[in-house]
Computed example of a mutant assay.
Amino acid sequence: MKYFLIGLTFVVSLLLIVVVVGQESKQAGMGTAIGGGTENAAGGRTRGKDAVLSKFTVVFGTMFAVLCLVLGRYMNTF
């Protein structure tokens, strides 16, 4: 059971990393301070791919937190 939970936590953490990296930046970043291009950052709700990735981020983040708490309790570390 312990190794299954550790493996599941590992897979969820990798998926969380992929989903977060896959999202587009909502801020201009350092490139514009140095003289980068001008981007039109339209505020408001995210659409399309970013909306789906945002929802997956919440789901995987919650799963990761719950799995870490369960593993901590199961292994008597807190």
Rank of each mutant, 00 (worst) to 15 (best):
T38S: 13
F60I: 06
L8P: 01
M1Q: 06
L69T: 09
L15A: 10
S13Q: 00
L5W: 02
V11M: 08
L67Y: 01
K2R: 11
R45D: 15
A33F: 05
L71I: 14
T9M: 08
G22Q: 04
I34R: 00
K55H: 06
Y74C: 02
A42D: 13
T32H: 01
F56N: 05
L8M: 12
I17C: 14
T77Q: 07
D50V: 13
G31N: 03
T46R: 06
A28P: 06
G29Y: 00
G35E: 04
K55D: 05
M1D: 08
G36H: 02
G7S: 11
T38P: 08
A28W: 01
T9I: 04
F56A: 10
Q23V: 08
F78P: 04
G61Y: 05
T46C: 09
L71K: 04
Q23G: 09
G43H: 09
S13H: 03
N40K: 11
T57I: 04
G72P: 07
S25L: 11
T77D: 09
L5I: 12
V70P: 05
V18T: 11
G22P: 11
G43A: 14
A41D: 12
G61Q: 05
G35Y: 03
G22V: 10
A33N: 09
F64A: 10
R45W: 08
F56E: 08
K55Q: 08
A28S: 06
L16F: 10
T32R: 01
S54V: 02
F78C: 05
T62N: 05
V19C: 12
V12C: 07
G48V: 14
F10P: 03
R47E: 15
G72W: 06
M30C: 06
F4R: 06
R45K: 13
L14E: 10
V70R: 03
K49S: 13
S54R: 01
V20Y: 04
G37V: 13
E24T: 15
G61K: 02
T32K: 00
T32V: 12
T46E: 13
G35D: 04
F60D: 04
M63R: 00
A65G: 11
K49A: 14
L15Y: 05
Y3F: 13
T46W: 03
G36Y: 02
E39G: 12
V11E: 01
T62I: 14
F10N: 02
T77E: 09
K55V: 03
A33G: 07
S13D: 01
R45V: 15
N76A: 14
G72K: 05
K26F: 09
L5D: 01
G31T: 06
V52T: 02
A51V: 07
F60R: 00
M75Y: 08
L67A: 08
G43R: 05
T62Q: 04
F10I: 12
G72A: 11
Y74H: 08
L5Q: 04
F64H: 07
T9Y: 06
G31I: 04
F56K: 02
V20G: 09
S25M: 10
K26S: 14
F56R: 03
L14F: 13
L69D: 00
A65E: 06
